[in-house]
Write a protein that binds this DNA or RNA. Structure first.
Lengths: 243, 243
DNA sequence: CGCCGACTTGAATTCCTTCAAGTACGGTGG
DNA sequence: CCACCGTACTTGAAGGAATTCAAGTCGGCG
């Protein structure tokens, strides 16, 4: 609350700018949202399934994921998130969380009261449209994940997931797409692709053998994005250039 | 256009009533939407991937699905739809379809111009909220599908898909949950669960052997919903009681 | 220096796919 | 009314992709 919203909520404002044409008044309203900051550590939970949260978490720095589990202990990551993403936007209108939200790296989060977001969405139609569009793109990404997990073999599946991740990082202005280490462990990749960690390891080495990535000290670096997209059959249209 | 909106768009009105508290004025606006009717046959396409559609399809009778394909020919159904569902709501804000929409039975559809829906959403905040909530529930269902396809074995996976389908039919007021034949072919079940049609056949017979369903003339009938929910680990919370 | 978490590698096993060859049924036309 | 045909379902057998189990290795951190 002490910090200036323009500084701290900058990533959120930039994200909304990619989703709709904000004017100065819109930006002012976003920057004026009430919020409290929290630093979290890698693996910390931000939301737990079944929880009724009165606040939405805006990711400022670091990375996070949403995941669900089966009773038998299977874990499935359903999305990754980065700077500017609202991690539990659905809780503006749906009281109970249907999944967990967890930091995958050390991260900082701005907690915004859900009613403030809801009011903003109806008072400023452009922002409301941006939030609805964000939800629609979210849904589009989930559909692609259903296809990815349901119908692609392990190589294409892992490659596709990595292509999406790098494309979204680029869209969020986080890194140049060339040659950077992904903030993902092999276990996280496994949980996101519905594979076992052991098989992800083998698959990553297969991708390395094809010259698409380099695995070094367990870290993954994409060295030939074009080749990766070929292996993955990756077409970024579903991201709507704004995710 | 000739028909009365209260009659023809009734399923849409009832669906929106489950998503938000409409008043008479809201209902009047929905019933007054411009639309044209179309009868389609089983397997007909309503929207194709990549298309820029200026109209949204509201399903009045029959069933439909949305699906995506890989270049190698794999087909993945990402959702099933029934009376009252808007099949391509995302096209109000996202111009290009990221997937196909196809009738899975003979069906009747009301085509509503997207701008009319968009205007209605901003003019009538309650309706706008209902549509946003519908999108959020849609996304919640997709997340469950990612988990289903990614982490459950064939038996639980098929059972879960059938539980969801029957629960949604019930919510839409289409049938009593007890003992009715599902309007799904084994190939459709396969495409929705990421399995092969052959294995779906075997899985259905396994579910029959456990007394959960009856397969007769290739048609599936759920005879023990409670047992099905147990096998599927089905918890309807993610449907938010309104899908 | 030793421990811990994450990655690596091999071998056996399992679940599901693919291929192939049927069967049953509803619709169509003679 | 019946023969034909196509579609969807059924069943068996062989093969393959990914899992599981088990035993390492590597590097960072206290």
């Amino acid at each position: 609350m002490a910090a200036d919203g323009y500084d701290v909520l900058g990533p959120l404002i930039r994200k909304l700018e990619r989703l709709a044409e904000l004017n100065d008044a819109d930006r002012r309203v976003v920057a004026g949202l009430p919020f409290t900051m929290e630093d979290v550590r890698k693996h910390d939970y931000l939301v737990r399934e079944g929880e009724e949260a009165a606040h939405c978490a805006v990711l400022i720095t670091g990375y996070a994921c949403r995941h669900k589990t089966t009773r038998s202990g299977g874990r499935q990551i359903v999305s990754f998130h980065m700077s500017g993403d609202i991690l539990n936007l659905q809780q503006v209108l749906l009281p109970r969380a249907d999944h967990h939200v967890q930091a995958t790296t050390d991260a900082t989060v701005a907690w915004v009261p859900s009613p403030a977001l809801k009011t903003m969405a109806s008072d400023r139609p452009t922002i409301g449209e941006a939030l609805w569009r964000d939800t629609l793109i979210d849904a589009s990404i989930f559909r692609e994940w259903v296809l990815n997990v349901g119908r692609r073999n392990s190589t294409a599946r892992v490659a596709h997931m990595l292509c999406e991740f790098t494309t979204r990082m680029e869209a969020a202005g986080l890194e140049t797409p060339q040659s950077f280490y992904l903030p993902l462990s092999q276990e996280q990749i496994a949980d996101a692709t519905g594979l076992s960690a052991v098989h992800v390891n083998r698959t990553l080495h297969a991708l390395q053998a094809q010259g698409a990535i380099v695995v070094q000290r367990g870290q993954v670096r994409v060295v030939d994005p074009e080749r990766m997209r070929g292996i993955a059959e990756f077409d970024p249209a579903y991201l709507q250039a704004a995710a």
